[in-house]
Amino acid sequence: MEIYVKVFATLRKKYPDINDLNPLKIEIESGISVSQIIVKLGYALTEIHLILLNGKKVDSETLIEEEESILSLFPPVGGG
């Protein structure tokens, strides 16, 4: 099945063209975990601080089962 991945802030260094308006479409097997996708994308798990699956906060062991899910990945960020 297909899902969409969006990466933000310093994670864009690896995928400079991927953003909210231009997500990365990837083909996965249903039921694989977020951490497997993170590794598949070439990131270390420690680089990822916040994971949103369809807008909801999840952890890296969450399984992706829904077609066309949107996975958003963030490094640690802050501001004010």
């Binding site: 933000f8 802030a9 310093t10 909210d20 916040l50 490094p75 640690p76 960020v77 802050g78 501001g79």
Partner: peptide, 14 residues
């Protein structure tokens, strides 16, 4: 890293 690289504006997307 986060603040020096992108400034506070890094929060817009998150």
């Amino acid at each position: 890293q986060g603040l020096p690289e992108y400034g506070t504006a890094v929060l817009v997307n998150i």
